[in-house]
Design a protein around this nucleic acid. Structure first.
Lengths: 340, 340
DNA sequence: CATCACCCCGGAAACGTTTCCAGGATGATC
DNA sequence: GATCATCCTGGAAACGTTTCCGGGGTGATG
C-alpha cells in the first residue's frame, strides 16, 4: 500500500528542491544532471510512481483509447482488439473495451459519453449506422476512427466486403459450381447489407449467366443461426454450393449439410468470410474471404494515434482489400490438403 | 467539440448558483427540488457532461478495472473478458485490457504499474507465478483478484484442472479406452503443471490399473503446437485415446490423427479442456472438460467489485468445479450426435 | 568592468471536480 | 414570542500534476 502513497510533493521535500524542479527532473526537460540525479534518488527511495489522474487532469490527455464493438466475443473483433492493443501499448496507451450495444441509439450514447473525457480517442466498428450516429461522431470531442463503411468527413478503415462476396462467387463458378445459395445475416446491419449487395451484383453479372441463385437470411451472424438458416436453405435442395456471409454462418451451414447427409466439398462447396482462426482449424478447412481484420485494426490504431498526437489533418480513409483463401471446403479434388 | 468544453463552473454561472450547489444538484444529495431543476436545465442547455478526470482526482476512484492476461486472443480469456465486462459495465466500471507478457518479470512490472492509479482494481490470470509476483500482488496499491492457482493471502478464483484431467481419464476408461496419451503444454506454466499433475495422479490411480499412459509436451497451448505434438505422439502408435490439456491442443491432435488416417472417435478418442466455442462447433464435436471460464470471470469481477467498494474483508478464495461435456470425439457409437 | 545571453531553479497558477464547514433562513416546539 | 433543530446554500480547500513566468547566478563578450 505504501508505494502508491508517495506523491511528487513528498519527493520534492525529500530531495530538498522545488516541486517544479522535481517534475522537470523526472519527465520534462531543462534540469541539470545533478538535479536529475538527486530527484531520481529521492523518487527511488520513496518508491514514487506518478499519479495518472493528476497528470491527466493537467495535461488533458488520458493515454487511453477506447475500442467499441457490439460483441467482444466475435473472433473478428478479437483479432482487431489484439492488433489495436499491439500498436497502442508500445506508445504508452491503454485500451478500454466498450460495447456499442446492438442498436444505433446505444452506439450514439456511447459516442456521446466520450464527452466525459475518459479517453483520448475511439476506434469503433458499428454494426448499424444512421444519420444521428454520423452526426454524433462528427461532434465527438475526441478523434473517432470507424472500422466499417466509410462515412463522409470521418476517419475510417474500410474493406470491400461486397467485392469479397464476388471473389467467393467467382471461385465457386471456377470450380464448376452452378447452383448457389447465399446465407446472409440481418440486412439492416452494415455488413449484412454490403454482402447482400455483393451477392446480388455477382449473380447478376454476365459471367454468372443466369445460373441458379437464392438467398436465405439468418437471424444473426452466429453458428447457431447459420445452422438453422442452412437447414431451411438445404432442405429445398438443388444446390451445389453455398456462400456464407461469415465464417460462423459457414460452419453452421456445414453442420446442416452434415445432418442431411451431404458431404463438403463433394456434394456442397461452402465459403465463409473473415478468414478467422476458427475456420482455419475447422474440418474441412474453410475456404474464406479474408477482410484483413487484424490489418484493419492495426490501421485504425495508427490513425487514432496520429490524431491524438497532432490536430487537424485532412480526413483519412484507409481501405484493406479482400482476398480469397482457398481451403478444403471448396477443394476440387477431395484428397487435397490445406495449404501451409 | 463544444460539448466537452462545458465545465461545472460554467453550469454554475449559467444557473446563477454556487459551484457546490451545482455539484450537489447533479450528483450528490442535499439539494432542493428547485435547485435541482434549475441546475439540470442549465446543464442541459450547455450540453454539460462531467469530466471523468477531474472527478477521479477528487474522488480517488477511476471507475476502471484492468483485466490482464498473456494472450487476449485465447478463447478462454475472451470468455472471461466478456463475462467481466458484463458484470462491471452495469456498475459504471470500464474495463482496461492489458497484457501480462509471457514472463513473470513482465507480469510483476504490470502489477507494479498499478501504483500509477489509473485503475481501481485488477483481474489477472498469470501464466507463470513466482514469489516475486506473489509479493508484488500483496503490495499492490489496489485490489487484485487472481484467476488461477490460489495464492496465500490473495483473492482468487480457481478451478481444479488436475481433477478435470481426472474426469477426462475416467471417462475414457469408462468407454473402454486403455492406452492413453497426454498432450500437455509447457510445464513451467501454472496450468501446464497442474494438468500434468492431474494426469499423473489419474494414471497412478488403482482404477487405472497399470494401463498404458504416455505424455508428449507441446511448445505452447495452440493448435499448431498440438498438431506437432500429436504427430510425434501418434507416430509411435499403439494409443486408443488422447487427453489434451486444452481444446486448441485437442484440435491439433485430431488434425494429426487425420493425417495418419486415424478416425476420431473410432480409432482414437480425444478429449480437450476449457469447453470453448471452437470445440463445440468443431467436427467431430469435442468432448471437453469445462473449467467454467465465463463463470470464473464473472466471480472475479464480483470479487473485485466488492473490494473496490468496501475495504478490508478477509481474503476470498472462490472456486469453480470442473465438469465433463461429452460430445462426438469420445462417442461410443459413432452415430451419436452432440447434445445441443 | 559592464553588459548581455543563457541556463537553471522556485513560486504559483491551473486543470475540474467533490466535500467539509459555517452561516442564514425557515419551520416547529415549548 | 423565544429557542432549537432542520434544511439548504455558498465559500473554500483539496486531490497531484505540469508549465508559465520571473529572478538569480554564471560565463562570455565587448
Amino acid at each position: 500500500m505504501s508505494s502508491s502513497r508517495a506523491t511528487l510533493i513528498q519527493v520534492a521535500e525529500r530531495a530538498g528542491v522545488s516541486l517544479a524542479s522535481t517534475s522537470r527532473a523526472l519527465h520534462g526537460t531543462g534540469a541539470s544532471p545533478a538535479m536529475v540525479e538527486r530527484v531520481r534518488a529521492a523518487a527511488a527511495e520513496l518508491g514514487y510512481s506518478p499519479d495518472a489522474t493528476g497528470r491527466s487532469l493537467r495535461m488533458k490527455r488520458t493515454f487511453q483509447v477506447a475500442f467499441a464493438v457490439a460483441d467482444i466475443g466475435n473472433p473478428v473483433y478479437v483479432e482487431m482488439l489484439t492488433a489495436i492493443h499491439e500498436v497502442l501499448a508500445p506508445h504508452g496507451y491503454r485500451v478500454v473495451v466498450m460495447s456499442t450495444g446492438q442498436t444505433v441509439a446505444s452506439t450514439v450514447d456511447l459516442v456521446r459519453s466520450l464527452g466525459s473525457g475518459f479517453v483520448d480517442g475511439l476506434v469503433v466498428s458499428p454494426l448499424r449506422t444512421d444519420d444521428t450516429l454520423v452526426e454524433a461522431i462528427r461532434q465527438a470531442p475526441v478523434p473517432v476512427v470507424v472500422i466499417g463503411r466509410p462515412l463522409d468527413g470521418i476517419d475510417s478503415v474500410s474493406t470491400d466486403s461486397a467485392a469479397g462476396i464476388g471473389l467467393a462467387v467467382a471461385h465457386l463458378l471456377e470450380i464448376g459450381r452452378r447452383r448457389l445459395g447465399f446465407v446472409n445475416g440481418p440486412l439492416d446491419t452494415t455488413p449484412g447489407a454490403a454482402r447482400q449487395r455483393g451477392f446480388d451484383a455477382a449473380t447478376a453479372d454476365p459471367a454468372f449467366a443466369g445460373e441458379h441463385a437464392e438467398t436465405e437470411r439468418a437471424d444473426d451472424f452466429t453458428v447457431t443461426a447459420g445452422l438453422e438458416a442452412g437447414r431451411r436453405l438445404l432442405a429445398r435442395g438443388g444446390l451445389d454450393a453455398v456462400v456464407a456471409a461469415n465464417d460462423l454462418l459457414a460452419i453452421g451451414v456445414i453442420r446442416a449439410a452434415g445432418e442431411l447427409g451431404l458431404t463438403v466439398p463433394g456434394d456442397l462447396a461452402v465459403t465463409g468470410m473473415d478468414d478467422t482462426e476458427i475456420g482455419k482449424v475447422f474440418r474441412p478447412g474453410l475456404t474464406s474471404v479474408s477482410l484483413g481484420s487484424a490489418e484493419r485494426g492495426r490501421l485504425a490504431a495508427l490513425l487514432v494515434l496520429d490524431r491524438v498526437g497532432d490536430g487537424a489533418e485532412p480526413v483519412q480513409q484507409a481501405a484493406v482489400g479482400p482476398h480469397l483463401v482457398v481451403r478444403e471446403s471448396t477443394a476440387v479434388a477431395s484428397k487435397e490438403k490445406s495449404a501451409r
